[in-house]
Design a protein around this nucleic acid. Structure first.
Lengths: 235, 235
DNA sequence: TGCAAAATGTGCGATATATCAATTTTTAAA
DNA sequence: TTTAAAAATTGATATATCGCACATTTTGCA
């Protein structure tokens, strides 16, 4: 029953969809009519799991972690959202409370769009509907991928994978061809990979010794992505 | 930064949304105009990861597993879909290939609806649009929950949780008040929990000795769901 | 620039889980 | 009902990862 690697889907496609790009001007204007902008300092919470949503967020600059807390308060980061991504719309669409929390992992500039405006545009814009359906099903596929990776891969492989993904997200800050620096705390990285800080450090040291990457304080500089791809995809 | 259990979301809400229920008759008729029905024997594959979608599937009777294979062919079950659920629409909405495979875990009767009909209704039906957006964001929340459970819970806790979920799915086959029998191979169960068959057996034995459940051959009869909830939610 | 607090890194024993091999039970087909 | 194949179970051992305690470095602020 187990066919080996038939039609493998491209696991390295992590591009995030921009929901708002190319929206008809009319829709875009209505959507942004009452937006308010706010700067979130590093670590500041944007919304909390279980709270009722009052609107959606649009990241104009910075990076945001979406995470869940377990009973002991330990967080697991589900996703790192980059600038130009939309945030917190799942709760409104599912007519429920936030399924996860969000906080900035670096100083971020974020616009808030009231729920009413979002729903108003949703009711009149087939383009936004279609865009959201596409984004949501893409997100679903990415999440399903993360889930099975968790089930099937070890810490080393998961970390390699996350470094590849993060590299894409941090790329925008650096000139093409220049080495990309990932600036993320070991704790956040560990919570993303689903392990402890110590284990992340251990594997990073190993990668450093293999010449795959360098570290400068907290910064991680990726030298050899291909090597990471081989590790992440190995098993 | 870690606030303990503030606004905990209800982790035990696993009800699946019925996308097609209460759809306007006009839309429903168009959707089902060219449907073809087929019986899938236990274990038969419905679609494969990476293939291009030709339509969507509606489970009229039976149960279906959605899964991903790793390089060695070991499968990880992402989700068990029950009757009356829609299948395979993510790929069409994301304009991509199937992100996972689907196969029946018991004899199932499944209708196939061609892509064209689905898209035609999607273009004209605000209700279907809204319904799909809601379903997708709900699914996303459930999946995100599974992901963080994987990161935070051990095999024992994950198995307890899956037994609770499966009990809900198998409930429909039994009279209210009657003990629910879960009829699933240990292999499928292990692939759902993300571990090996042997480990599932060991934990099941433990549960059996605690009086939480009984087994009759392959069947698992849950006696004490509350105990399972305590275990699954413990950490 | 200097200092305290926070973050990072290291060693090691404890533990959960994976993995292999062998046995027993169940299932389904003749 | 018999029987062979498939599935489930048990036991033993290997391995990855966890999590504590502690040392070191980095960071941000006065």
């Amino acid at each position: 029953m187990s066919i080996k690697g038939l039609f493998p889907i491209d696991k390295w496609d992590f591009k995030s969809e921009s929901v708002l790009a190319d929206l008809p001007a009319e829709d875009f204007d209505l959507l942004t009519a009452h937006q308010t902008e706010q700067v979130y300092k590093k670590g500041e919470i944007i919304f909390r799991e279980g709270a009722y949503p009052a609107g959606i967020f649009y990241i104009k600059a910075g990076k945001v972690k979406k995470y869940k807390l377990d009973k002991e308060g330990k967080e697991h980061i589900i996703y790192v959202a980059n600038k130009e991504e939309l945030l917190g719309y799942h709760a409104i669409l599912s007519e429920d409370r936030y399924p996860d929390s969000a906080a900035s992992i670096e100083e971020s500039r974020i616009a808030f769009i009231p729920k009413e405006d979002f729903l108003a545009v949703l009711n009149q814009s087939p383009v936004l509907n279609r865009r959201l359906l596409k984004t949501l099903s893409h997100e679903f596929a990415v999440l399903a991928n993360s889930l099975s990776m968790f089930a099937q891969k070890n810490v080393r492989e998961r970390l390699a994978l996350q470094l590849i993904v993060l590299r894409e997200k941090y790329k925008v800050n650096f000139k093409p061809g220049m080495p990309v620096e990932i600036n993320m705390s070991r704790d956040d990285l560990a919570n993303l990979v689903g392990t402890g800080r110590e284990n992340v450090v251990r594997v990073l040291t190993e990668f450093k010794e293999s010449g795959i990457l360098q570290t400068q304080g907290r910064k991680i500089i990726i030298n050899d992505v291909n090597q990471l791809i081989i590790i992440a995809d190995y098993k």
